[in-house]
Amino acid sequence: MSFSDHLDNFLKQRDQKAQPSTKGTFRRQYTVQEPTNQSVAREALAKAQEDASEQATIDTKAPHIRVNGRCVTESEAQALEQLKVDAAPANPNRIDYIKQLRKELKLKKRS
């Protein structure tokens, strides 16, 4: 008996055994399930982290400027400059009043 004959016999026996047993076996039916809120949130968080990582890579390669001890990109520095409010001119009467209050506080003795 050659190997091919042996293989054929083996396959026939396997097929004969498999036919009656297929009636009793359970076949899985795959269903498409709606994503849960948790899985949707997890995907959104992963996407946000990926976007932030890409943006950080871009920002680290961009030239930076130091503003008030912080390193910011040029666009952020321009935005800060636009948001900056000009200081009101000093009111001499108010300055005199503050100086007077300081003098009074120094003259008071702690008891």
Results as ranks from 00 to 15, higher is better:
71 C>S: 04
11 L>G: 08
48 A>E: 10
85 V>D: 00
47 K>P: 01
37 N>F: 05
99 K>E: 03
13 Q>Y: 05
93 N>M: 07
35 P>G: 09
56 A>K: 14
71 C>N: 08
9 N>E: 13
56 A>M: 05
2 S>E: 07
2 S>D: 13
61 K>F: 03
1 M>H: 02
110 R>K: 11
53 S>N: 08
48 A>L: 11
4 S>E: 10
98 I>K: 09
17 K>Y: 15
104 E>N: 12
80 L>G: 00
31 T>F: 13
15 D>K: 15
30 Y>L: 14
67 V>A: 01
109 K>N: 09
108 K>A: 12
68 N>S: 06
99 K>A: 05
4 S>H: 09
28 R>G: 11
1 M>E: 13
28 R>H: 07
43 E>Q: 08
16 Q>T: 14
19 Q>K: 06
26 F>E: 15
58 I>D: 01
20 P>L: 11
21 S>N: 12
2 S>W: 05
2 S>F: 13
5 D>W: 08
54 E>L: 09
15 D>F: 15
72 V>F: 00
32 V>Q: 04
75 S>M: 08
59 D>P: 01
92 P>F: 08
33 Q>H: 15
40 V>G: 07
65 I>L: 02
99 K>L: 11
43 E>H: 08
78 Q>P: 07
72 V>H: 00
55 Q>C: 01
103 K>P: 02
68 N>R: 05
68 N>H: 01
45 L>T: 10
74 E>F: 03
20 P>G: 10
6 H>Q: 10
96 D>W: 08
50 E>W: 03
77 A>F: 04
23 K>Q: 15
1 M>D: 08
27 R>W: 12
67 V>L: 06
62 A>S: 04
107 L>H: 06
95 I>C: 00
37 N>C: 06
102 R>M: 06
54 E>Q: 03
5 D>S: 12
11 L>W: 14
42 R>Y: 04
106 K>T: 12
78 Q>A: 11
91 N>M: 04
6 H>T: 12
86 D>G: 00
29 Q>F: 11
18 A>Y: 03
94 R>L: 09
17 K>S: 14
6 H>E: 04
52 A>Y: 12
107 L>C: 10
108 K>Y: 11
79 A>S: 10
4 S>R: 09
36 T>D: 15
55 Q>P: 05
81 E>K: 03
68 N>F: 00
13 Q>D: 14
56 A>F: 07
10 F>Y: 12
111 S>A: 10
41 A>G: 06
3 F>N: 15
111 S>T: 13
61 K>Q: 10
42 R>W: 11
77 A>V: 02
48 A>H: 06
15 D>S: 10
109 K>M: 11
49 Q>T: 00
51 D>G: 07
54 E>Y: 05
31 T>R: 09
59 D>F: 03
22 T>N: 10
19 Q>T: 15
107 L>W: 04
66 R>Q: 07
70 R>W: 00
19 Q>R: 15
14 R>W: 13
84 K>W: 02
27 R>D: 12
45 L>N: 14
108 K>H: 09
78 Q>G: 01
51 D>L: 07
40 V>L: 13
107 L>V: 10
95 I>Q: 08
105 L>F: 09
